[in-house]
């Protein structure tokens, strides 16, 4: 085997090994959640609520702004171009397929990965470097119960809530774009609602859960992997963000393939 092929094989093996380790870490977090004591659940929820405040509440403005702009651009351009062919009714299909099903969840996930994924990885890496994670283990606490489970729960809930905001704002901004481009509001809502089925709502909800899981597990994994040097913290944060984004896009593609 030539060297480049050998290197390629080694790199692929490393990636697969990383994915396996991430999956084990995720399942381990699930098991840790199942064995929480009553008082531990109270603490975990308290931590999760703090995370939701940062991940969801503080990100609402950004999600509203970006989803509004995205929807306005797509719908404005689409009405003009589709109007030339007399098929403006396709605007509903475009809104549902492009925005609600695909771009909305991706935009939401990118925002959460950029803001909170980085923060989670940096925070856990700092905890690790300061010896706090080791201290938890030393006093008999599974660090996954205290640091990973709340962040995982918070990420799933936050992505779900932000996605509702994102899609609602996108549809509302599409209305404004349609009105500015000569389509009546009533007609816009009629064709959008005709195109929107229960399957789209379930698919979006499924993506929220899947993306939230990725955005909770991946940054935690990279954050806790840091053991010694503070110089590893920015590297972990960067790797976590990139891996989260790649994971979300791959997952999104899998939804299309498996549907």
């Amino acid at each position: 085997m030539s060297d480049p092929l050998s290197r390629l094989g080694n790199a692929a093996a490393r990636r697969l090994s990383d994915i396996g380790a991430l999956a084990r870490f995720g399942f381990g977090a699930g098991r840790a959640a199942a064995t929480l004591t009553a008082a531990g659940r109270v603490v975990a929820w308290r931590v999760a609520l703090q995370q939701i405040r940062f991940t969801a509440v503080h990100a609402v403005g950004l999600v509203v702004l970006l989803s509004g702009i995205l929807s306005f651009l797509v719908i404005s351009q689409a009405i003009r171009e589709l109007g030339r062919f007399g098929v403006t009714e396709l605007i509903g299909t475009l809104m549902v397929i492009a925005i609600v099903r695909e771009l909305g969840p991706l935009l939401t996930a990118l925002i959460v990965a950029g803001r909170s994924g980085t923060a989670i990885a940096a925070e856990l890496a700092t905890n690790s470097v300061l010896g706090e994670v080791r201290a938890l283990e030393a006093i008999g606490i599974d660090p996954r119960q205290y640091v990973v489970v709340p962040r995982l729960a918070a990420a799933v809930i936050s992505v779900f809530v932000l996605l509702v905001f994102c899609d609602t704002v996108a549809i509302a901004t599409g209305y404004v774009a349609a009105a500015l481009n000569g389509m009546s509001g009533a007609r816009y809502f009629e064709i959008v609602l005709q195109s929107l089925g229960a399957g789209d709502v379930w698919l979006t909800a499924g993506k929220a859960v899947a993306f939230g899981t990725i955005l909770g597990v991946v940054p935690s994994y990279y954050g806790l992997a840091v053991r010694r040097a503070p110089t590893e913290i920015p590297i972990a944060a960067s790797r976590a963000t990139v891996a989260s984004i790649v994971g979300v896009f791959v997952c999104s593609a899998l939804f299309v393939v498996l549907r």
Binding site: T37, A39, V42, V43, G131, A135, L136, G140, I141, Y146
Partner: peptide, 26 residues
């Protein structure tokens, strides 16, 4: 270096092992 968690109060630091490691009521 004590190993206390810096984002928790002293009270919560002391309570932490009991909350996660015992079945006692809160």
């Amino acid at each position: 270096g004590e190993g206390l968690l810096h984002n928790l109060s002293l009270r919560d630091n002391v309570a932490l092992p009991l909350r996660f490691g015992s079945s006692a009521a809160p």
